[in-house]
Amino acid sequence: MKISRKTLGIPYGLFLVLFVIAPLVVIAYFAFTDGTGHLTLGNFVGFFSDPNTMGTLLYSLVLAFVTTLVCLFIAYPVAYVLARSKWKRKSILLLIFVMPMWINFTLRITALKEILTLIEGNLAFHPFLNTVIGMTYDFLPFMILPIYNTLERLDESLLEAASDLGADSVQAFLRVTLPLSTPGIVSGVSMVFLPAMTNYVVLDMLYNSTYIMGSLIGSYFSAYDWNGGSMIALLLLVIICIFTFLTGADESAGKERGGALL
C-alpha cells in the first residue's frame, strides 16, 4: 500500500489537536468565564483597571526592551566581525558564543549569580540591572545567530558596488550593510523580546521579586484563579501576535527565523 502525504501528516495532526488547539480552547474558555462558568468580560476589566497588573505589564515591557537593546548592541558588532572575517575557522568563534546554550540553564544562572554577588556584594541592590544582565547572558546567542546569518550571506559585490559609486566604508555600512541585515535584526529582536517579557525564572533566581508577565500568570494559577491567569495568557498571546505581525511584515524575516533555529 502506498502511504499518502495525508497519512504521513496524521501524527502531527494529532499532536496539533491535543497540545495546541485543545489548550487554546480551554484557555479561551476560562478567560471569558467567571468561577461559576458564566460568560463575562470581567477578567479583562479587572486586569486593565488594576494599577498592580498594569504596572507588571509596563515593567515587563521595559525589561524586555532594555534587554533586547543591550543584546542588539553586543550581538551586531560580534556578528559583523564574525561574518566579515576572512578567517577560515570562524565557525569555531561562532561556536564559542553559542556553546553556553548547551550548558544547563539553571546552572548557568546560578554561576552568574555567584559572580554578580562577588562584584556587587548583595544582589538585592540592583534587581533590574541584574535581571538585564542575566537575560542578556541567556538570550544573546539568539540575537547573534540570525544577524550573523544575514551578514554572512550578504553579497560582497554589493559593498564593492557601493564603494565603486563613491561611498566610504561608513556610508557603505549605513546604506547597504545595515538595511540588508534588518531581517536578521528583526528576527533576533523577536527571539529575545518575547521570551524576555515572560521568562520569570531568571528574575526568581537573581532574587528580583518584581513580577513580570510570566510570574503574574503563575501567581494567578497558584491562587486557583484559573480565569484571571488564562485571561492574561490570552492577552500575552495577542500582544505577541501583534508584535510578530508588525516585525514580520517583511516576508524575508520569516526565512531568517528559520535559519536561526539551526
Binding site: 554589493l158 565603486d164 566610504d168 540588508l180
Partner: peptide
C-alpha cells in the same frame, strides 16, 4: 575605489536589492 573617477558594471550586476531602481541609480 570611491576616490577613483572610474565606475564598474559588475558581472552579476550587484544592484542593491533593498532599493528601487531610482535609488539604485541615484546612489
Amino acid at each position: 575605489p570611491n576616490k577613483r573617477p572610474i565606475n564598474t558594471v559588475f558581472q552579476r550586476y550587484a544592484l542593491f536589492p533593498h532599493m528601487n531602481i531610482y535609488d539604485n541609480i541615484a546612489f
